[in-house]
Design a protein around this nucleic acid. Sequence first.
DNA 1: TGCGGGATTTTTTTT
DNA 2: AAATCCCGCA
Length: 777
Amino acid sequence: MSDPFDLGDIPEEETARGPSISERAAAGVAAPTPYLDSLNGPQRQAVEALDGPVLVLAGAGTGKTRVLTTRLAHVLNTKRAWPGQILAVTFTNKAAREMKQRIGALIGGVVEGMQWLGTFHALGAKILRRHAELVDLRSDFTILDADDQVRLMKQIIKAADIDEKRWPARQLANLIDSWKNRALAPDQVPKGESFAFANGKGAELYAAYQARLKTLNAVDFGDLLVENLRIFQEHPEVLEDYQQRFKYILVDEYQDTNVAQYLWLRLLARGHKNICCVGDDDQSIYGWRGAEVDNILKFEKDFPGATVVRLEQNYRSTPHILQAASGLITANEGRLGKTLWTDANDGEKLTVRGVWDGEEEARTIGEDIEQFQRKDHQLNEMAILVRASFQMREFEDRFINLGLPYRVIGGPRFYERLEIRDANAYFRLVAQPDDDLAFERIINKPKRGLGNVAVQTLHQAARAQGTSLWRAARPLIESEELKPQARRALTIFVESIERWRQLMPALPHTELAEQILDESGYTEMWQNDKSADAPGRLDNLKELVRSMEQFENLAGYLEHVSLVMDREDQEADDKINLMTLHAAKGLEFETVFLPGWEEGLFPHQRALDESGLAGLEEERRLAYVGITRAKQRAKISFAANRRIHNLWQNSLPSRFIDELPETNVEVESQGDTYSYGPSRFDEGGFAGSEYSSPGWQRAKAKAGNHATPPRRAPMIDAQATLIATSAPDAEGFERGERIFHQKFGYGCIQDIEGTKLTVEFEKAGTKKVIASFVERP
DNA sequence: TGCGGGATTTTTTTT
DNA sequence: AAATCCCGCA
C-alpha cells in the first residue's frame, strides 16, 4: 500500500477548473471506441451519457457490470478524466476487485491510478485518515469490528449501571448502527427511538460510546462514513477539494445505499454533477442493514435533469425463469417497473416439489445433482440457495455422505476466527499502542498470570490518568500496586511489546509477525492444546502469516483486515455451490435449487414481525433474486416438517409459491406429477390425507385466510395474513396425556414448559415438540 | 485464578 | 443439538 496521503498521479495542471487545452483538443478528435460496438441500444446509451446525473435501472442479468466498466473505460478513453479523478463505489470488495480487473481488460493492461475505486467503507476510511485530526482522531486510528464493538458496548452499559441481561449489548450495537446508517449524531436521535433501549438511555449511551471511541482513537464501521460527513459539513474547503477532484462518480448497487451513503454521494456529486448510479430496485435485499430503496426511487428528484436508462434485455435466463420471476415480483408495490425480456428459447419450466422434511429435501436434491452429473453437467454450474445458513447443514451432511464435493460461499470468515483475531490483536497493539481492546484481548493469552484482578487495576489506573491501558501499564510496573507475580508478568509483557515495536521499522513485517507469535507464547499455547481443532488453528496462523506477504507493511495489512472481511475464494475445482440467497446476489448458475420455501422460513417470520409489509416485500425481492440467478432451470422445494432449534414444527408452503404464474411452473412429486391448481398444496394435496387432521386444521386457522389465496393479488388484505405459524399455546394439555403428532405418531406427555411439550413417543423416543402441533387422538 | 458443569439461548440476511 | 455464558467451587 503506497502512501495513504498521496492524492494520486494527477498532473498539476489537470486539477485546475475547466477543460484544459489538451482536453479541449482531445474532444475534437474521435477516439476509437471499439468496445461500444458490442453493446445493445440502452447499454450504449448508459455508457455514452457522460454529462450530468444518470440512473441506470439494470434488471437481473442485463449486463450491468459490463455497462459500468465500459462506461468507466469510455471516460478514460475519451480523456474526460484521469483515473485519479474518478470515484467508483461498490458495496463489496469482490465487486471492486472484479471491476478493477475488467477495466484493465478493456483498456489493456493494469489500471494504474484508480485509487478511488473501492467500497464505501474503504473509501470512507481513506478520506478519514487524511483528515482525522478534524474530528479528534489521529490518522492511525483503529477500525473496530463488530466483536470489538459489542465488547466496548458491554463496558459502557456496565459503567452506566444498567442490567446487561435485560438490555443486551448486541441490541445497543444494532441500534447505534441503525442511527449511524441514517447519519444521526447522538443529539439527533429521535426521543422515541432513544427509548428503545434502557428506558430512554439510548442516546445517552450512544454519546458515551462515541466519547469512548475517541479516547481509544478508534472508529467503528458506521463512523467511516458518518465522520466523513462531519468533515464535509464542518470544513467546506475540504469538501470542495473532493468535489472538484471527482469529475465522474460511479455507484454500483445503488439500491443498497443507506442514508449516510446517500448523503455522502450527494455532497461529493455536487461539484461536477456527473454521477451515474446503477441499481435494481427489485434486488434491494439489505433493508435490515439500513438500505433505503427510497434512494433509488427518488433519484430523479434528488438529481434534477437525470437521464434514466432501463436495461431490460436479459442475457442470462430462459423465458420461463424470467416470467416466473417477473410474475412474482409484480406483487410488490412501489416499484420503478421493468419488464425483462430475452431472445432465448423457452427452456424448462420451474419445478416445485413438496417433501416430508428437511432430510428428504436434501436427499432428493442430492439425487437430482447426481443425475445432472451423470448427464455431464458441471457441479460448478449448480447452486443451492438457502434463506438462512442453518439450512446448509442438512445439505452438507448429505453431500459428505454422497461424496459430492461442495463449497460454501460466504461461510464463516477467515478473519473472524478466534486465533486470527488474537494474532491480529497482538499486531494491533504493536502498531497502535492505545488500542485498549487489543490490549485486553491478549494480555492473558496465553495465560501469564494476568487475570481479572490485574486487568481491573490497570483499568483503574488508566481511567485515573485519562490514558490508555498501555500507557498506564508502565507506571504500574514501577509501583507496588500489583502482586509481585503479576508485576513480573506485566513487566515481561510490556517489554516484549516494546521490543517488537522497535523492530517494526527494521524487520519485514511477516518476520516480525512470526516472531511475535512465537515469542509471546501464542503459538506454543495451541501446540500444547490437546483439543481437536488446535492443529487447524495452527494452520490458520501459518496461513495468516503467509497472506501478510502481499502487503507492504503491518499498517497496510491491518487496514485490509478491518475493511476486507472476505478472502478470494478458490473457484478452480468443480464443486456444488452452497450459499444464502443474500450471498448469491450478482452470481449466476445453470441450475439453481431453492429449498425451504415455507411460511415462516421464507418469507422469514422475523422479517414479517419486525417490518410487516415492507419486510414481506423484501422477502419477495429475495425470492426474485433467487430465481433470477438461474440460467437454465430453477427447482423450488418445501418441506412439511422442519426441525428448528431441535423442535419439530410443521409448516405451510410459502405464499411465494402460489404467486408464481402457473404457466411457468411444473409440480413435481416423488415420481409423478400433480395437476396444478390454485390450492394444490392446501387441503391435503401433496402429501396424503394426514393433512385434514385437526392439528392441520388448527395450523391452517392460525395462518389466517391463507388457504386459497387469490391469484396474483397480494395477500396483505389483513394483518392476520402476515402471521404464519408463530405463537402456539399449550392449551389444556396435561402431563401424562396421550397425544398424536404428525411426524412421530402417538406418545405420552412427560413435561410441559410454556408452549413446549416433552413427549415420550411410542416409536420415536422422547422429543420436544410445540404444543399446537400435537392433538388428542 | 482457573476450571467445570449447569443453565440458557440461538443468526436471517453482512459492509 | 450445539454453543455460549455464567456462576460456583477448588
